[in-house]
Design a protein around this nucleic acid. Structure first.
Length: 211
DNA sequence: ATCCCGAGGG
DNA sequence: CCCTCTGGAT
């Protein structure tokens, strides 16, 4: 759809620096950092990862870690019990089934503990250059306000957006929507007054809010 | 009080 | 569809 492409062109101009904000070195650390990013800000994640990766730099090391030790390293992130269990389980699965390497297919990634479609698409597009559109709460909210899709579920949204954009743009499109959702098109208080898409958004309101 | 770049389970 | 897991930031 032409409108969708125009919207992403505007976003690309507005946010030339939009990118994955998780600090990482290579596919494994990206995967780990992305798992940690659930329900907490990437700023908090980036504060915890240096010590985490210094101690457990790869899958082989993390696979042998004691979950309680990992919990202590990520305690400030919230959901630390679940995340620690998933990190160690993910690392063990990598060692057991993939020789300690991060797989580069959606099927293999979503089979790892704690890895869903969103995380898998981040890893695919960021680490492997495989086109993947990551749908999170921001993508859902911002896209709905803009009227970019009909679906209300992540899989349906992913399918619709992918159909409207060339594969080479899928990864970047994710970042642009997330970036915009965090900075301007916020959940409670969308700042329509300073939104680059004001003229193109059906939900934009003059008083600075959106539906 | 409420939210944060989710995933798993009922 | 719903719920739970979690603490830090605001």
């Amino acid at each position: 759809m032409k409108r969708t492409r125009r919207i992403f062109a505007i976003l690309a101009r507005a946010y030339p620096d939009a990118r994955c904000e998780l600090d990482h070195r290579g596919p494994f650390q990206l995967l780990a950092a992305t798992i940690l990013s659930a329900q907490c800000t990437d700023r908090n994640v980036n504060r915890a990862t240096p010590a985490l990766f210094r101690r457990w730099p790869d899958a082989a090391a993390l696979a042998r870690a004691r979950p309680a030790e990992v919990e202590r390293a990520i305690r400030t992130l919230g959901l630390f019990r679940t995340k620690a269990r998933n990190l160690v389980g993910m690392a063990q699965a990598l060692v057991r089934e993939h020789g300690g390497r991060v797989p580069d297919t959606m099927e293999a990634l979503v089979r790892l503990p704690g890895v869903g479609r969103k995380t898998a698409n981040v890893v695919l597009s960021e680490a492997f250059g495989v086109p993947g559109l990551a749908v999170d709460t921001h993508v859902l909210r911002v896209g709905k306000r803009l009227g970019l899709f009909q679906a209300g579920d992540p899989v349906g949204v992913e399918r619709e957006l992918c159909a409207q954009l060339p594969p080479a743009q899928w990864g970047r499109a994710s970042h642009l929507l997330i970036w915009h959702g965090r900075r301007v098109c916020e959940a409670r208080l969308p700042r329509c007054g300073e939104c680059a898409l004001r003229r193109d958004c059906p939900s934009a309101r003059e008083d600075g809010g959106a539906s």
